[in-house]
Computed example of a mutant assay.
Amino acid sequence: MMIPLTAFFLSTQMVVAVADRVPVLNFEPGCRHLAQLDLTVDPSYKNCVQEEKSARTQLSREWGQFAAADRTRCTEETNMTPGVAPSYVEVLECLNMARDVATTGQIRRPRH
């Protein structure tokens, strides 16, 4: 019974570590892939990298305002899909949706 209990404590510590600070994500492969697919409004690699860096800066400013459980979940979700590069934009969108649901009970849709 000691091994499962030890594994539990180790995994709990890793979750806390993930939630404590903005994750370090390797988003550049995803930007290269998007630029090759030409599926975005501005498919340039440079634009994608700028969007990712901007999202990381915003996450750095607002990280502590999000619930720890949401920070952990959103970070884990962006790293879940094998072969798909993680994204700060994705983490930020996930966290904003979680916050919207917690405060208003619904997801806010951007106005066009």
Rank of each mutant, 00 (worst) to 15 (best):
C48W: 01
V84F: 08
L10F: 00
G105V: 06
E62C: 09
V18R: 10
R21C: 09
Y45S: 13
T72G: 04
D100S: 11
D42K: 12
N79G: 02
Y45M: 12
Q50D: 08
N26S: 08
S60W: 12
T81F: 07
R111E: 15
V16T: 09
M2R: 15
C31E: 06
C48S: 08
P86S: 02
G64Y: 07
L34V: 08
T57D: 14
A7V: 00
V89Q: 03
A69W: 05
P86C: 03
E90L: 06
D20C: 12
A102S: 15
V84W: 05
S60T: 13
G64D: 11
M80K: 06
E28P: 08
V22T: 07
F8E: 01
D38N: 10
F8M: 03
P110W: 00
V22S: 07
M1R: 14
C31P: 03
Q58G: 03
T81R: 15
Q13M: 14
S11W: 00
M2A: 14
T103G: 13
E51W: 02
V91S: 01
T78L: 02
T78R: 01
S54M: 13
G105R: 06
R32T: 12
G105K: 05
F27E: 06
V89D: 01
S54V: 07
P43W: 02
T40H: 05
M2I: 13
Y45N: 10
S11T: 04
F8R: 01
N79T: 02
Q50P: 07
S11C: 07
F9G: 11
G30C: 06
R71N: 02
R32M: 14
P110G: 05
A68I: 09
A35R: 07
H112I: 11
V22C: 10
L34P: 03
G30H: 01
E90R: 07
K53G: 11
A69S: 07
A98L: 05
Q65Y: 08
N79R: 10
D100I: 06
L37E: 06
H112Y: 13
F8L: 04
Q58D: 05
V16A: 13
E62Q: 09
M2G: 15
Q36K: 14
